[in-house]
């Protein structure tokens, strides 16, 4: 049983992340189709953990699966149409929040949860609009999203929602596979071109993670709303990456990783209290 959990939550997503790395290296024009394939990979990871969704979805878990699949398609479409990222993320995730939380809207006690979930939605949208990958290290956005996934997983775990904690962690492992290979190449092949994921790939992963976080935030038996809002601060860090340029290239991801651990660590501590 435990080995199956590790296999589905860590090993398979990690291997898929390694495949993502080689796909991104093999095809330099790893653009919108890469974002599409990444979205499908995240969808498969979710299905592996939660099973095929019942359709039409009658509860939050199958709704998350539908959202991940839908966001994968809409993310590609938005890339073709060059829709403003802030408007896209804010629009899609606000609708996701309404759809998943439809039967909790009337509950006044749920208001802090809805408000807390809008914090990463707003900050994430703003960050994706303003902090593009192109002028940064290839690992800053993946590390940011890994920290966000791990933070979300631990908040879910502390909120007694183990299933989606696993799913958040699995997406983190998926990005971890990519990040580890990228880092190894930075260390041992510093003269080769960096393996950059286009922003649309990061965006579809963020949209998927937010679908999970919305379900966690609204349906975990206990969840720290302050922890969710605090964890969202990690999404601001890609805006500070210019400050990391003075460090050696190989050290930049390490120092940045430690930096991302700070807001996420504080969020987890708040959730644990």
């Amino acid at each position: 049983m435990f080995s199956e959990i590790i296999l589905n939550t860590v090993v398979i997503p990690f291997v898929l992340g390694i495949v993502l790395f080689f796909a991104a290296r093999k095809f330099p024009e790893f653009g919108l189709w890469g974002a599409f394939v990444t979205g499908i990979a995240v969808f498969c990871i979710y299905i592996l953990l939660e099973g095929w969704p019942s359709l039409p979805p009658i509860s939050s878990k199958p709704k998350v699966a539908v959202l991940i699949a839908g966001f994968t398609i809409l993310n590609v479409a938005s890339g073709f149409l060059r829709i403003n990222r802030f408007a896209l993320i804010l629009g899609l995730l606000s609708l996701a929040l309404l759809w998943i939380g439809w039967n909790r809207i009337g509950d006044i006690e749920m208001l802090p949860r809805f408000a807390a979930l809008m914090v990463p939605v707003a900050i994430g949208g703003w960050a994706f609009q303003n902090f593009d990958q192109q002028d940064q290290s290839s690992l800053f956005w993946p590390i940011t999203l890994i920290a966000f996934a791990i933070g979300g997983a631990l908040i879910a775990l502390l909120g007694a929602y183990i299933g989606l904690a696993q799913a958040m962690g699995a997406v983190g492992a998926f990005l971890g596979g990519f990040a580890l290979l990228t880092f190894i190449f930075i260390l041992f092949r510093p003269n080769t071109a960096p393996t950059n994921l286009p922003q649309n790939v990061h965006q579809v992963i963020f949209l998927s993670l937010m679908s999970l976080l919305i379900a966690i935030g609204l349906y975990a038996p206990e969840v720290s709303t302050i922890a969710i809002a605090t964890m969202a601060m990690v999404l601001l860090l890609p805006g500070l990456t210019a400050r990391f340029a003075r460090f050696p290239t190989a050290l930049q991801p390490v120092i940045y990783g430690i930096t991302t651990a700070m807001p996420v660590g504080v969020a987890i501590a708040i959730a644990a209290l």
Binding site: S60, N103, A160, Y161, I162, L164, L218
Partner: peptide, 17 residues
């Protein structure tokens, strides 16, 4: 702690059902 987990959507999904 187990009671809370059983009430989560992993099991009985008390909030939705």
């Amino acid at each position: 702690a187990r009671n809370k987990h059983l009430m989560s959507p992993d099991f009985f999904n008390a909030a939705e059902f």
